[in-house]
């Protein structure tokens, strides 16, 4: 017999590991990736590969040569960041810009705070917002989805439905007229529209949500609270004046709401710990998103909304505590 091991209890462990959780997220992202490849063709593949490889490479380089620690790229978190970054950019984005975005996402968004688990902001969104501000033209020339045969950079570009809507409303056109210029709700649902690579297919993203819930990777609270808030908020606006506000279904299906609510806002590291906190976080994201969409200068605001609410997470964690057992005595 060899030496006995001694450790404090417990002595058994669940087989969940950080790696497994991350790869479950990757699996959940696959349907959306397939839809994007179907709609955007080669561009989607090139953008995803570039983002993933550069994210992994930057993480490895930073850990190895700057932080001088054991590289931990196999844990899958950089892979998730890479895919999410790719999902958040148009498929005709030049490779150089994607690499810059990856550097910002991993270097600034994640490693500068101490690596996995220590970053206050979602790294992929930090990268995306950095690119949006630095390269507004490239970042907002969305390719029109036509089919797989498309080549990479010379794709036909057009505006997103949200962009069309914003332009139309500010030009004073009635919503019903604008609606004729953009795809119907059913088409929006399965993603036949222009936009960032991974945000278009609500159907695929919802499939991913279902998978993650099934595998207990995330809880429903954050996506649900975001959907409800956006639905209610835009619903009220729509009921008040249907001719100058789009309907709630349109708001939920377009832009990055699905991608943001399901994959970006639920990022463990940057979301609150308690269920109550998750609701506050989700409602905050919903309100800020709609505010930016309806009243702001950008047609889409969920990236900013998530980043803003990320900043509130430590505060939420500090003040919103789960109810403790035996805290209020109620004998029944």
């Amino acid at each position: 017999m060899s030496k006995l091991f001694i450790s404090p209890s417990p002595h058994v462990y669940e087989d969940t590991t950080v790696k497994r959780l991350m790869f479950d997220v990757v699996i959940a992202l696959l349907p959306a990736l397939l839809f994007s490849v179907y709609f955007f063709g080669m561009g989607a593949i090139i953008v995803t590969l570039t983002a993933v490889v550069s994210c992994l490479a930057f993480e490895w380089l930073i850990q190895k040569y700057i932080l001088k620690e054991e590289p931990s790229i196999t844990d899958g978190s950089a892979l998730v960041t890479g895919i999410l970054l790719a999902f958040n950019v148009p498929t005709n984005l030049p490779i150089g810009i994607i690499i810059i975005g990856s550097l910002v996402a991993i270097g600034v968004g994640k490693m500068s705070f101490g690596g996995l688990g220590n970053n206050p902001f979602n790294p992929a969104l930090v990268g995306r917002v950095f690119l949006l501000i630095s390269f507004p033209v490239q970042m907002t020339s969305w390719p029109v989805p036509t089919g797989f045969s498309n080549s990479y950079t010379d794709a036909v570009t057009g505006a997103t439905p949200l962009g069309v809507m914003k332009e139309g409303i500010s030009a004073g056109e009635p919503v019903s007229a604008i609606m004729d210029k953009i795809p119907g709700h059913m088409e929006l649902f399965y993603g036949h529209m222009g936009g960032s690579m991974g945000e278009i297919a609500a159907l695929a993203l919802l499939l991913g949500l279902g998978y993650m819930l099934f595998r207990k990777v995330i809880k429903i609270h954050i996506p649900l609270s975001i959907f409800l808030t956006i639905g209610v908020f835009t619903g009220i606006l729509w009921l008040v004046n249907p001719e100058s506000n789009a309907d709630p279904i349109f708001h939920l299906l377009t832009g990055g709401v699905m991608l943001g609510a399901i994959f970006m806002a639920t990022d463990y590291v940057t979301s609150p710990m308690s269920v109550k906190g998750m609701w506050i976080f989700g409602i905050g994201i919903g309100i800020i998103t709609v505010a930016i969409r309806v009243f702001g200068a950008y047609p889409e605001g969920i990236s900013f909304a998530i980043l803003i609410m990320n900043a509130f997470v430590p505060l939420i964690n500090m003040y919103v505590k789960p109810k403790r057992f035996g805290e209020e005595v109620k004998n029944g």
């Binding site: 450790s7 462990y13 950080v18 959780l21 978190s77 690596g115 996995l116 688990g117 789960p322 035996g326």
Partner: peptide, 30 residues
């Protein structure tokens, strides 16, 4: 022996699983 050793430690990813399994409503990570 193969079940006797602990898992390899990595950074806390603030997944809040400990919070949701705590029967006493505490925040173990904290």
């Amino acid at each position: 022996a193969e079940l006797s050793q602990r898992k390899k430690e990595v950074n806390c990813i603030r997944c809040a699983k400990c919070v949701s399994v705590c029967p006493q409503g505490l925040e173990p990570y904290l």
